[in-house]
């Protein structure tokens, strides 16, 4: 157990060190794009969006929940990228030829991606706050939002890692990634509520786990506990199933690649 911890903390430290050496990429590729959504998209549609349809005081407060979960989506789906590079340049083999527990590398990646995602979610909520979006459920609501984000993120990161272990080249990886991320966003309640979507889109969107996550985070921000709790309860169940499936698939891909 002590060994396990030593391995995981050393491997996690490696991800932190890497990020700290890439200050520009840290700033520009991780924090910024989501803020663009919030600031530009949110303000752009401020008047175009019907607050009656949104069930929110203004569009940006409606969008905040969507941007939070989009952050989780993007980080999660990209979570396996570094392992992909490790696989391609032989670093992963070097790690796996040491007497570490087979899950240490993966676990360190989960910890790192979750930590970064949490920080970014807090940044998003902070910036939203500056635009007048004050979470109705307070600090506890923010904590619940993080919990939901983490539960969604674990599954996504598992998918990403499974892909990293399975693809032949990193070109394939990024193609699939680019292909997945936008439909996931459009076919969810991130930008408009399901009720405002064309029938076929709202039909597909209700199978998107992202929709469930957003529908739980949104009342946490907009309404209050009374409305949020049933959604929160539901999303936890949905995410447990989602994570179980993703982790199972990820474990299978990992075993195939490593043995």
């Amino acid at each position: 157990m002590e060994h396990y911890w030593q391995e995981i903390s050393a491997l996690t430290m490696r991800w932190v060190r890497r990020l700290s050496r890439e200050k520009f990429s840290m700033l520009f590729t991780l924090v910024q794009p989501m803020l663009f959504w919030l600031i530009f998209f949110g303000n752009l549609f401020q008047r175009a969006a019907d607050t009656q349809v949104m069930q929110a005081p203004n569009y940006i407060s409606f969008l905040a929940a969507g941007v939070v979960i989009m952050t989780v989506l993007n980080n999660g789906l990209a979570g396996g990228v570094d392992l992909l590079f490790d696989k391609e340049n032989g670093f992963l083999e070097r790690l796996m030829s040491t007497p570490i527990h087979r899950t240490s590398v993966i676990l360190s990646r989960f910890i790192f991606v979750m930590a970064i995602t949490s920080m970014q979610v807090l940044v998003i909520l902070g910036v939203s706050y500056l635009f007048g979006v004050h979470p109705a459920t307070g600090i506890l609501g923010v904590a619940t939002t993080l919990l939901i984000g983490m539960m969604f993120g674990v599954g996504l990161t598992a998918i990403s890692m499974a892909m990293a272990f399975s693809v032949k080249s990193h070109g394939d990886f990024f193609s699939v990634l680019g292909f997945l991320s936008l439909p996931m966003i459009f076919l969810s309640s991130a930008l408009v509520p399901l009720t405002a979507m064309p029938g076929w889109m709202s039909f597909l969107a209700q199978f998107n786990p992202m929709t469930w996550a957003i529908d739980a985070v949104r009342p946490l921000i907009l309404s209050g506990w009374a409305e949020a709790l049933p959604h929160v309860g539901m999303v936890i169940l949905v995410m447990l199933v989602f994570d179980a499936l993703c982790l199972y698939g990820g474990a299978k891909a990992f075993r195939r690649a490593m043995g």
Binding site: R14, R18, F91, R94
Partner: peptide, 15 residues
């Protein structure tokens, strides 16, 4: 019992 030196330059450029 073993040490391994991979074929590729298995180096993390940032470390």
């Amino acid at each position: 019992l073993i040490g391994y030196v991979p074929q590729e330059r298995a180096i993390d450029r940032f470390l």
